[in-house]
Design a protein around this nucleic acid. Sequence first.
RNA 1: GCCCCUGUGGCGGAAUUGGUAGACGCGCCUGACUCAAAAUCAGGUGAUGCAAAUCGUGCUGGUUCGAGUCCGGCCAGGGGCACCA
Length: 876
Amino acid sequence: MPNDRYNAREAEPRWQRIWDERGIFATQNADPRPKYYVLEMFPYPSGRIHMGHVRNYTMGDVVARAKRAMGFAVLHPMGWDAFGMPAENAAIERKVHPKSWTYDNIAAMKKQLQSMGLSLDWARELATCDPAYYRHQQKMFLDFLQAGLVERKQSKVNWDPVDRTVLANEQVIDGRGWRSGAVVEQRELTQWFFKISDYAEDLLGALDTLDRWPEKVRLMQRNWIGRSEGLLIRFMLDPATTPNRESELEIFTTRPDTLFGARFMAISPDHPLAQAAAKKNPALAAFIAEAKKIGTAQAEIDTAEKLGFDTGIKAIHPFDPEWMLPVYVANFILMEYGTGAIFGCPAHDQRDLDFVNRYGLGNTPVVCPPDVDPKNFVITDTPYLGDGRMINSRFLDGMSIEQAKEKVARRLENQTRGNRPLAQRQVNYRLRDWGISRQRYWGCPIPIVHCEACGVVPVPEKDLPVTLPEDVTFDRPGNPLDRHATWKNVACPQCGKPARRETDTMDTFVDSSWYFARFTDPWIATAPTDRKAADHWLPVDQYIGGIEHAILHLLYSRFFTRAMKATGHLGLDEPFAGLFTQGMVVHETYRRKDGAFATPAEVTIESAGDERRAKLSSTGETVEIGAIEKMSKSKRNTVDPDDIIREYGADTARWFMLSDSPPERDVIWTEEGVQGAWRFVQRLWRLIGEIAQIDAGPVTRPAEFGPAALKVRKAAHGALAKVSEDIDKLRFNRCVAHIYELANTLGDAIGDVTSPAALTADFAFALREAAGILVQLFAPMMPHLAEECWAALGHKSLVATESWPQLEPELLVEDTVTLPVQVNGKKRAEITVPRDSGKAEIEAAVLAHDAVKRALEGKPPKKVIIVPQRIVNVVA
RNA sequence: GCCCCUGUGGCGGAAUUGGUAGACGCGCCUGACUCAAAAUCAGGUGAUGCAAAUCGUGCUGGUUCGAGUCCGGCCAGGGGCACCA
């Protein structure tokens, strides 16, 4: 062999060029084969890819390449989630235009992705900041508006004071903006909302159908939607105590069974009744003002005490006209949930208990735990939340909680006041509508004009897209669109009088809520989707991305797909049939004596025995090996994919990403691991080279295979069966292990060939066949090396376009089986018997075995359990 | 606080889903090749023990002929939600 080292740096670009020239990864919409749509979450063009991208896109590429070989028409596209704040921040800091910054980054990252050898159909590439993309988004906004799925309303919103924009609830994490980290404030603003809550029930229910989603993600969405069943109850008010003769107060409860444990009513500071009462009570007004100050930042909420203010208003218990309950304004009642009012049952709710203990209102337990004497049952600091029997509850006494709930509901439903029942059943959701207005420049303009005379006017379809003006400046804080006179001031599309454009842009999560649909036909200019193409390709068969999108992106996309269906742009509800959430790439951290972090590239690792030590390569200074953490700039524990690809090649990086750790778990990036992967690349190259050199005359399939040949063939087909299954289930770490095993077996087999005489024709055939299978098995993971090996084996075709090897299942069946033999559950021996031996034969063989006899000490066995082809257990 | 997940060698992890615990890789040890190192090749590597053997999947009870796997109770780590009535 001319060169005994595989030169990835030379080979990888060469094969990438060949794939590209032959256009083998371009997908035709008219392809008659069964379709398979594999998609990885598209990246934000930050400028450089990171190891997380490498892992994500490698997994997707393995699936794409394997499915292609298995006979599917595979759609595997890539695009750019290109709107967003970093572009504006760059504009402010570096005086570059967001557009040129974004497109420069796209060019750089595209080059990096291409160096990974991904089998992508680049002809379908799209960027969400392209008017050719977002014009359709504007069209859908107008369609949704018409369909009643968009609403403009004044609302309390999360305001990020650093990014100077509104954030959705989903984007507020621990009271801070998900990007800026700034403590979020509450403001009242008029905003555009997508009515995702209209679909709450459907989004929740359909989770049960997503059987190829991780249970964890489904659970997180379930919790996020937060369904609770309860009762809306109208409490009559004592008119003498109310400010404006209000007659009733409606509350929502999930525990109507505890109605006889009620001690107080509480309403939100924003509740109309509180507002009305405050007008006549300055002390109450002051309390409300104070309460509104708190209750925005999470940290404050956690520490804020449960405060209330007695309004003096009295509510009448629905089952007892003599029973008066004081109505408090309380700082922990949210106007946004339920009716903004509750009744407090302190014995069975922690918050209510804290409240009564503070104000001395006492409590009455109404649910008694089993095995507790109701006479001795008292509540002090801890409420009782468990199951039990009703007590102190008049006609409910003795019932279970469920019976009591039903009884209360029935009774109140059948009582009316003013022609309306006193109660009705209601389901409430935690899920709020999706506020999409952002006071930023670099986003999709909302196609609306505000006119003094006509009000809110949609931009006519013929005037779409509303494009972003490019002549903007970022020298002042705030939204440049807001001060762009020629863009902002337009004639009203309806009356022609001077009007102004909506200057808010859409949340970038809107952009990513339908890109998967656009990929099915990114060329159509007249509509967001070509229904034929979309109906053909969707749903995405396998979607792969990070768990951090478990709620945000995945819930929005599920909503958007339904909204697109309602407006005729799609024909299905669920966009992603299969979802896989991959783990993070993590790395050790290195801390210098002065406390500063050192990067992995600056550090040399030395190991002596079990000890590992790190020092700076430059000065030899010892650095402390710290915790293994997610790769991040602040911890400086990042490894640049470019460096790895330059030094070892893309295949090595890809192989390492798939090895060892299960794909859903975090993978620890180590230098040793990468070198191990690199050594395996070289080993495969040598192994295939050696087999390629074997010259045993014309390669024809022999009629019979000898034992040596059979062993090789069994190993190859065994690996084929296992790898096929594990790719299907995305268990790439197991694929890697099976490929190692096959390579080990082939290496041993070649080692056995000590003389030309040992190289029989059947063995040579088997070796070549196995080598071909081996190459095809690792081709999805290390595609460049595979092409090089495939060519070395004498093939003229590309392995990337080859069909998956045909499995010969009869090779997986062994003639004999080795059964472990246990005596009383402890392994004592092994016996090898013909595969189809009867139980009697096996029992006889087992009892004749010396080790078994010894263990039985001459006594007859009580019982012999034989599990065919598994195990034998002798019970003494 | 509520909900969920995970605990297996020095390390990452396998284990046909109740049937030989530790596949495969990393690391380490021994040897060959080499003046030497790297690479490569051969062998070893859960613990204790010279050995036979015994113990061993966070701890602890249980079910079972048989438990890493199932059930109960603890402990530890991680994640999600969090004034949601």
